[in-house]
Write a protein that binds this DNA or RNA. Structure first.
Lengths: 211, 211
DNA sequence: AAATGTAAACTACTCGGTGCAGTTTACCCA
DNA sequence: TGGGTAAACTGCACCGAGTAGTTTACATTT
């Protein structure tokens, strides 16, 4: 009984304060996504969250800190990276195709798109503001580069700079499934188109690098 | 003699009012490049140009119009597009390599880099603000897509979507010679690296699409 | 009744843009 | 070559709106 009260009390106090926090984060994400760091207004943001501006400042001491929290939150939300484990028993094409498809999935995911819409514009002019994005931005590349190294050591790929090769592979994919969507608001490729994009990337890559 | 006088006279008269105009444009380009459209300040810009703010507004009625003039000026400065003319008598690899190299040259040129630093950030959030860039941004792609169509009609490339194929080819190049420099401030590839990038792009492309 | 969270007013700016008085420059004509 | 006229430039004050962040005073809850 006493415990029940205590639990519900703590739960409520947590959720009520915490709910405001989440409301603020959600509103801030929208605001930053729409208007960028400079364009976003703390007043408008507070209104969006249906919360007093003072409450915003109770949770986040400054606009910059709030921005960093947004970026951090978005980074965490897709922490499961594109994981590709080299397997010497399977065909390279099969493994690469899986990697390509999961990369495309990542590029198309809501949170990844949001993260990029928010940070890339800031990245161009103030690297420190969006610095936490950098590692995440190309963390897939690192996974792929390890896979390529493994395949090279296994004698199944030509000995090339694995970072460079990974960059090529991902560039091929992003050219169709990332940049046009980010910059030109093109629609994201359909599942069939995704398959084609992945296939083409794999074919081109192996035609060049397979031993 | 008379002509000399007239020339120097006209030159002087033009340059003095026009010089201010050019000073303003130069200062505005720096300001926008450093701080973006929102971050740029008309006061700071006027001080940079060593010109009264009123004079700025005498030449350009608003910040937005000034911005558009900057973008227009930068676009015009590399109006000579990447021109690739299909020639059935020459090897595809040779023609593509030339196209790739001139594309890389364009990507590395000062004015093109400036244009992109200024417009891409705005492109993400306010397409209309940087709309004039769109055509120029991918005008090379259009040239390449015509070349691909010609090669297909000549029976030397498989029948594929030429826009898509051009996108792949340019994506391959941009992955190494554009995006890392724009977003991560990486150094531009050396001439030897450029040659490698171009070669790889050509090899991959032809391995996939040559008949 | 105490405490907390709230809204609204407030501070001390900066912004884009304008009005204006006075100065400098450019150009034409005598 | 000199003088006059018109245009352009200057610097300043100023406007209204909006900014991040802070204070104050009220209301709701427990």
């Amino acid at each position: 009984m006493v415990q029940d009260l205590k639990v519900s009390f703590m739960k409520k106090s947590l959720t009520l304060t915490e709910k405001k926090r989440l409301d603020i984060l959600a509103a801030a994400q929208e605001e930053f996504k729409e208007k960028g760091f400079l364009g976003a207004s703390m007043d408008s943001l507070a209104k969006r969250a249906a919360v007093s501006k003072r409450t915003v400042y109770n949770h986040f001491p400054s606009k910059e800190i709030l921005f960093h929290n947004i970026v951090k939150q978005l980074c965490d939300s897709f922490s499961q990276a594109v994981n590709i484990q080299y397997q010497s028993s399977k065909p390279l094409a099969e493994q690469l195709h899986i990697a390509a498809m999961s990369e495309i999935q990542l590029l198309g995911s809501e949170c990844f798109r949001d993260l990029n819409r928010i940070t890339i514009a800031e990245l161009i002019r103030s690297p420190e503001l969006a610095s936490s994005t950098l590692e995440h931005l190309d963390q897939q590349k690192d996974g792929l580069h390890v896979w390529i190294n493994d395949a090279i050591n296994d004698g199944r790929l030509k000995a090339v700079d694995s970072h460079y090769a990974a960059q090529q592979f991902l560039g091929l994919i992003k050219a169709s499934a990332f940049w046009p969507q980010l910059l030109l608001n093109q629609t994201f490729p359909s599942p069939e188109q995704q398959k084609i994009i992945a296939d083409d990337a794999v074919l081109m890559f192996l035609a060049r690098y397979e031993t």
